[in-house]
Design a protein around this nucleic acid. Sequence first.
DNA 1: GTGCTTGCAAACGTTTTGCAGACTC
DNA 2: GAGTCTGCAAAACGTTTGCAAGCAC
Lengths: 132, 132
Amino acid sequence: MLSLLRARGGRATASRRILLEVLFDSHDHRSVEELAAAVQSRAPDVHLSTIYRNLEELEELGVIAHTHLGHGPATYQLATSAHAHLLCERCGRRYEAPAELFAGLARAARQRYGFTIDPRHFAILGRCAECA
Amino acid sequence: MLSLLRARGGRATASRRILLEVLFDSHDHRSVEELAAAVQSRAPDVHLSTIYRNLEELEELGVIAHTHLGHGPATYQLATSAHAHLLCERCGRRYEAPAELFAGLARAARQRYGFTIDPRHFAILGRCAECA
DNA sequence: GTGCTTGCAAACGTTTTGCAGACTC
DNA sequence: GAGTCTGCAAAACGTTTGCAAGCAC
């Protein structure tokens, strides 16, 4: 990934290395604030704005992706582990939704509008069993 | 609707009347800024914070609903005309998606997780035919 | 008159930007 | 050495809040 960066004229800096390590170690999505805390535990001077800039860069490279689970801050994860979510709008309970759940919608959207869905960006809201 | 407000101990004020009129006249979703401009063309002194507070109140009443189409500001519409959206993440093109498109997802989510989806809150991102 | 509602100003949380210096290649 | 990246401070953005005055009931 660092060489991917370099291929674009980018530099492999310490803050980027650490950020990538943190993202690899995260087995869940992380908010920018959480990522910053993790990065700063290893390199205290890395500024929040640097994290934002690096996340943007890595996202353009297609290495990571961000997701909006609700009204709060965005969450980031490796592009390879991106997936869709169901989020209860009442209690906040969250389910990770495999792509197959969206097969029907994907087919219908393509047939009707020529539209290719990527349902991972925004969560699908609704009510969990308990709150419904 | 104004009597609905009163039934809750609320007051039927001029700014609420006008806001409701604007929402009825809007045949599409409107951002808060757009709503404010429309309201202020009839009552210049209505403040943006009043619009926000009234939108919140009307949403609690179940009369209106808000939707996030993308990264920008929320959009509001009458609850009766709420629907799901497909949004091209490249060109911004937008499709209104009828509930039937989500039938398969709704069934799968209920069977697998007991989860009842309401796909109208966040748009489904993806690529339109031209951008795919 | 009670108490909900308003305008205003100020704050909020998240994200973006301008700049001069530091670093990677 | 050229050009990217960084820390810092400040701004931007959409939204929320505290307060005293104003209005609906």
